[in-house]
Structure formats: structure tokens, C-alpha cells
Design a protein around this nucleic acid. Sequence first.
DNA 1: TTTAGCACTCAAGGTTACAGAGTGCTAACA
DNA 2: TGTTAGCACTCTGTAACCTTGAGTGCTAAA
Lengths: 340, 340
Amino acid sequence: MLTERQIQVLKVIIDEFIQSAQPIGSRAIAKKDGITASPATIRNEMADLEELGFLVKTHTSSGRVPSEKGYRFYVDHLLIPFQLSSQDMGVIQHTFAREMLEFEKVVQQSAKVLSDLTSYTSIVLGPQVFETTLKKIQIVGLSDHSAVAILVTSSGHVEHRYFNVPKMLKSSDLEKLVNILNDRLVGVPIIQLEQKLSGEIAGILQEHMSNLDKTYAFLQQALLEEQPAKLYMDGKTNMMRQPEFNDIQKIQSLFSIMEQEDEIAKLLKTSDKGIKVFIGHENQIREMQDCSLITASYSLGDKQLGTIALLGPTRMEYSKVISVLNALSVQLSRTFDSWY
Amino acid sequence: MLTERQIQVLKVIIDEFIQSAQPIGSRAIAKKDGITASPATIRNEMADLEELGFLVKTHTSSGRVPSEKGYRFYVDHLLIPFQLSSQDMGVIQHTFAREMLEFEKVVQQSAKVLSDLTSYTSIVLGPQVFETTLKKIQIVGLSDHSAVAILVTSSGHVEHRYFNVPKMLKSSDLEKLVNILNDRLVGVPIIQLEQKLSGEIAGILQEHMSNLDKTYAFLQQALLEEQPAKLYMDGKTNMMRQPEFNDIQKIQSLFSIMEQEDEIAKLLKTSDKGIKVFIGHENQIREMQDCSLITASYSLGDKQLGTIALLGPTRMEYSKVISVLNALSVQLSRTFDSWY
DNA sequence: TTTAGCACTCAAGGTTACAGAGTGCTAACA
DNA sequence: TGTTAGCACTCTGTAACCTTGAGTGCTAAA
């Protein structure tokens, strides 16, 4: 569809624009290595590329700027694998060399590295518990009417939920309850907890003890309550350094949406394996339609755990960002695998 | 030191400037209720107030703007108690009416209410564990070389720390360890854990078992590791709506410092009881020297638990902010008290 | 001590002029 | 037929200039 030369011109324009954020003129392109045609010829090609929707002008006599369609073509067909500098690789290695025992810390550090290496905003969705099994459950009474249930999963995740207990309940009853739960639930995938709790276990409990009904209802409610996935973002302020966001209005609307972590989390949850690129209006969230979002996933074994992503202006260093995400995705998966 | 009329003029200027963010001229002041003097007289007073350091001009022929010294005087002597609107009170009531069982949720909601009611940025330092005692300790092995220790405090706080265990350790030994720890440590104030762990307990363990040494060292390290206090901020983007921050540079430096939560936490930790106002350069952090920070504390019984604060431009609605902080501080303390 | 009057200052906004970058089109060229 | 040089045209950004309006400081009178 596009001629060889058109592709060449398009690539030069996007590469240059990613660096300079300025519209690119025909003269500048003609000077580039690999380009033999004269400015006039380039102008003709540019007019064609504009007609095809790959380029736009900011005003009648300005140079050209890539359109979203242009970026899409660039990402799909023109991307050359980016070799991370040994310095950048060093930063990653160094970060993961420190012994870290916690998911949280690892994930948080990843967000930091991502934004540091790219100067964009990183978003990391913490590991989901879906795929793990229950390792231990413990209940600790706090007062005569409240208690906390603590769950430890096979992946080492610790969660706790508070719930009410009726005043008349004896602590020995609570102990009995914990024992039954541990007997029956250890090893059960977290995702099956709901089913087990309301089926099997409920029956057993009814046999053994009468006054536990109410407690059990509260506990069940606490355990099944959907916990929002942990979200880590880093380098938000990097966005302010991008020339496309030197407008308070834009910054504000972008930051407003970034404060709504649940929205962002929803966005990243749906991502599946591999690298995904969302350019401008391909983003569901309106406030992000001047931006591109690139997501990747990390896993434990073959189970997908979570998502890492980078948000930047549509004029993004796609090539580098994808490499960094790749490297980090591998590194994260490797780290988690080494734990088990 | 200041005449009655000077005080009157100063108050009008600050009140007006807080509303309009524009320099105030003598004519505007003369028109105000309660002011009988003519613009010329006011001008003389203003010149005096400027000489005394309470006012500044933005340029030779502009109206006057309060200086930090002016705000300080205003806060110390001119503040009239602000009556929260019943609507605002309603928002607070309503937020706390919903049953909440967790410190985290309550504290997070508080941050939200604070920023919603004031249109500034709220900062809430989560409850510190210093004053609480240990209620329960539990250790769960995760793999053959790692485990997680879970602590529950008397205030219902749950914390967990990961640590290494030598491979040769039997799980029965771990159990023994937990039992000893629970026997000896339950009821001990968290703040005394360090002492107990390295003194008394270390001795007992040495008697009972030999191969626990290494595990114990790791556990001790994990437990004593200083956990950063949880910090909740809300309404950061409110700052962008303030006219004094319609400059990307300023916004950026402010947001950069707000991302450094450890710095902020350090700042709030030092606060003691009652409301404290830090105006402009009274703030330790350079990037905040265009801002004022107002802090208050909340408590459980007579033990101070944490800090709530509001960050805004020096041109802040001091009166309202202080009322809101007061109301919330009371509400928070009341909520926590009701739990125990 | 207060006030009216007046000259003076400064910021902000609008207008004009101009240079620079870049385009599209035409006509000549290979 | 594709490529290129030349040229008129368009638009942006910046600087210089002017005008307006708000506000001051000072002086002299009340």
C-alpha cells in the first residue's frame, strides 16, 4: 500500500518527532542519511501521506506531525528492536540484586525502575491472588465484639479483614471455628473460597455449633469482600516535563484521572499476555487520549500474576519503552519463580 | 504596637486577598463596611503596614498583598472562629456514620473528607503503633527457606514481615519458637519489643534450642525493621486550581516533593498535640515555601495516634481549615475511642 | 490628623511589523 | 513519467509600541 519511500519518510518523521516534539519539514527530512530525494519530492510524499491519514499539519504552512494512525503503523511495522544500554541493564540488575522477600517491595521497586529508565509514568498492578491457594487462616479477637481474620496464601501474601462477632461468643468457640476452617480450607484455591464457605463448611458448622451462625455470616462477608488490587504508580511528575503537557488544564485532567486508582486498575486487569500498545484514542479513558499506554504482564510459572505498564504522551519512545517493559517483565517473573 | 485602624486594615486586606488572590487597593478597602477613613488615609496606613513588614507590593503601583509576617499576625491574633456550615458538618457526620472497622479505611476516608471540604491537599499520617501492645504473634512457613511473621497489636493493627529461615529447621521448632514468643511477648508494648527480644528472650531460646540461633537473628531483624508510617494524601490536584500555582514549574516542584512520602511523613511525625500552623518559609521543606501547612493530631484515649494536615497556598482559608481540622480531629478520636 | 487632588508608575492587552520556516504549485529537466 | 528548482504564499512567534486602567506617593488644604 505504501511505497518504500513513503515508509522511509514516515519513519524519519516519527523518529524525529519523538525526539524533538516539533513538526518536521521537508528540508530536515531530505538532509537525513538514507534519504536521497530532494525536499520537493519529500513534500509530494508528505502530501500523499497526509491524504492517507498518517500525518497531520498543525497549520497550513507547518511541517508534519504523525497522526495516531501514523503511530499505529509505526508500532506495527516499523519498530526496530531497541538494545537497552548496558547502563540501563545495570540499573535493572542492581535493583533486583538486592534481596527482597516481599511481593510488595519487588513490585514497588519495579515501578520506580520503570519510570526512572523511561521518564514516563509507570503503573504496576500488584499480584492478584486468584491463582493461589490458602495456606493458613487465623482469627484474633480484638474486643468483645470484633475480630480480625488473617489469611496467608501459598504465594506468601498476607491479608486481613475485620469483622463483627456477637458479644456472647466464647473465645473457645472462635478457636473451634478456626480449626475447622484450617482443616477444610487449607490448600483450597482462593478463587474457590466462596463456594466452599457457603456450601460444605456452612453445613459442617451447623452440625457442630449453634451460636456461631452470626459470626460465621460476618466472617464470610469479610472474606469474600472484594479487595481492590494494589496499584503502584511512579514518576507521575515526569508527565509535566513533556512539552505536550505544558498546559495546566491538561495536566490537571490527567492527574485527576490518575488519582482514580480503581479506574486505572480496572484498565490493567483486562490485559492478557504479551505487550499491548494503546495509542491515543485507543485508550478507553477519555483523559488519557493524548497519551499512549503500553502494558505487559508478569507471571509465576505459567500463571499470570499482574501487569506492568507505562503511560506517556502519544509521542512516546515506543521502541525503548517496549524493551524496558520486556526486560522488566522477564526479570519480575524470574524473581518470583526463584522464590518457589 | 499596631493601632486599631491598622489592624482593621490588615484584616480586611488579608480577608479580601484570601478570597480574590488579587492585590488589594486603598479604594476597595475604603468601601468596606466598618471602614470610615478615606482611601488616602488608608494609603498612609498601608504604607506604615508595609514598612512594618506586614504587607508587600507586587510592583510600585500595585495594591498590597499580605506578607508571611502579615499572615502570621492574622493567624495569631485576628482569626475568628469559623462556624462550619451544616452542610459541611453533614458531610463529616455522614462519612463517619458508615460502620468502619479498620483504621486504614477510617483514616483514608478522613483524608478524602478533608480535601473535599477545603479544596486543598490533605495529608493524614496513619496511626502509629508505638503506644500499643502486642496481642498475638504467628509465624507461617512459606517455603523451605522463608517464612512470614504476623503481628497483631492491641489496637487491631496487623503487620507482617518476611524473613529467611535456614533450610535444616524443622517446622516443629518454628512452632516452639512461636509459642515461646507468644508466652513472653503478648501484652508487651511494641516499643519495648526490641529490648525484650535481644535480652530476655534471646537467653531463654539459647537454653531451649540450639539450631534456632540463625532463624532468630533473621526474625529479630525483620521485627525490628522500622516500618514506614502509612501516609494518605488526597486532593493533590486541588493545588493546580490555585492561581498561585498556574505555573508548571511550581506545580512540578511541589508534586515532586509530594511524591516523597517519607519526607512528608517525617514532617508530620514531629507534630504534637493541638493545631499548628506553618506559614511559607516556616516550612522546613523548601518546595513547600509557597505553601502553608496546618496540622492537628488525633488520639485514642490520651495517647496521640497520628496527624492530620492540610496543605494549601499561603493564601489559605486559615479560619475554615482550622475548623475543619478541629472537627475531624475530634471525630476521629471519638471513632477510635468508641472501638475500645 | 485627615483628605482631595494630581502627577507618576506599572501591568496587561492590543496592534503592527517583521523574520523565519515551511508549504503548494508550476515549469523545466532527465 | 518521476524528480527537482524556483517562487509566491501562509502561518507562527517575537519584538516594539501604544493605550488603558488601577493604584500609589506626595503635597497642600481643611
